[in-house]
Computed example of a mutant assay.
Amino acid sequence: MVGVMRLSTVILPIHRWAEGQKIWRRAEDLGFHAAYTYDHLAWRTFRDGPWFGAVPTLTAAAAATATLRLGTLVTSPNFRHPVTLAKELITLDDISGGRVTLGIGAGGNGFDATTLLKGDEEPWTPRERADRFGEFVPLLDKLLREPAGTTHEGRFYSATEARNIPGCVQRPRLPFAVAATGPRGLKLAARYGQAWVTTGDPKLYEAGTPELSIEALAGQLTKLGKACAETGRDTAELDKILLTGFTPDFNPATTAPRQGRPLDSLAAFVDFAGRHAELGFTEIVVHWPVADSVFGADQQVFERIATEAVAQLR
């Protein structure tokens, strides 16, 4: 059906490492292309439970695995600075032997946007998040490409002879997977990304249908193609990553009972993945099951999908 399709997973940073390391190793054993984690200070309904830092978690995962790619989905400027992030990334890339992908986006209105605020401060507006993202990504790119020293004085971020010697194991730097749907973010993806990430159209989760979601994703891909053309880049150079769980296919209220949700069975997932592969997606990311949550799924079915789905899509 498709030429190349990769299947990856997101492992939420909710597990004490005595248990968590088993999950990351299992993800490698199952043959996932990559395992990512969320980079938040807290997230939605998981706020009042365990939630560990993304970079330390990925560092431990790098030591516990040998071939699995690792990364964030996604890091944002909400509580990060390009200079300190660059230092952490080159360290993580070194420890992992060059297995790191940085998923990066503009951020949103969640706890990341409010936790560090003073009492009289307001969260950044969408425009300000986009403005910061537009400066954050080019500076981070420069910091990772030019380890001998970077100086930058911008509107939001500064760096004075910032050194990141010896630089990334992956040259000229580790890959960026840029999450974006708006015109400014898509231009950043076209210029700086080795991959593009989307979760679909969030407005369709409650009121949409799988068919409408496919149309919305096709529209996003068209806009990505235009952004690449304006940058003088072939869109085929970018991997297209779909982070699942946020489209109508995963909402029980909008899923046809006969077919079921994508993680309900191997057949349902192959159908879902095939339709999105035909759009041009090259990597699909599924959440590692978390019982009694929005990411609940049968572990045995999930592992069968991990080991058998990609072969059926070829």
Rank of each mutant, 00 (worst) to 15 (best):
E88P: 02
E88K: 00
E88N: 04
L89A: 12
L89Y: 03
L89T: 05
I90T: 08
I90Y: 00
I90H: 01
I90D: 07
T91A: 11
T91R: 01
T91H: 03
L92N: 13
L92F: 11
L92H: 11
L92E: 15
D93W: 02
D93Q: 08
D93K: 00
D93E: 13
D93M: 06
D94W: 01
D94Y: 02
D94I: 00
I95F: 04
I95S: 07
I95W: 05
I95Y: 05
I95E: 13
I95C: 04
S96C: 09
G97P: 00
G97W: 06
G97V: 02
G97L: 07
G98F: 05
R99D: 14
R99V: 03
R99E: 14
R99N: 11
V100P: 09
V100E: 14
V100I: 15
T101V: 15
T101M: 14
L102V: 06
L102Y: 00
L102I: 05
G103K: 04
G103H: 05
G103P: 11
G103V: 03
G103M: 07
G103Q: 10
G103A: 08
I104V: 14
A106M: 13
G107S: 09
G107R: 06
G108V: 11
N109C: 03
N109W: 03
G110Q: 10
G110W: 12
F111L: 14
F111Y: 14
F111K: 01
F111I: 12
D112E: 05
D112F: 03
A113G: 04
T114F: 06
T114N: 08
T114K: 04
T114A: 09
T115I: 10
T115K: 04
T115R: 08
L116V: 09
L116G: 14
L116T: 13
L116I: 09
L116P: 02
L116H: 15
L117D: 14
L117M: 12
L117A: 13
K118F: 13
K118S: 15
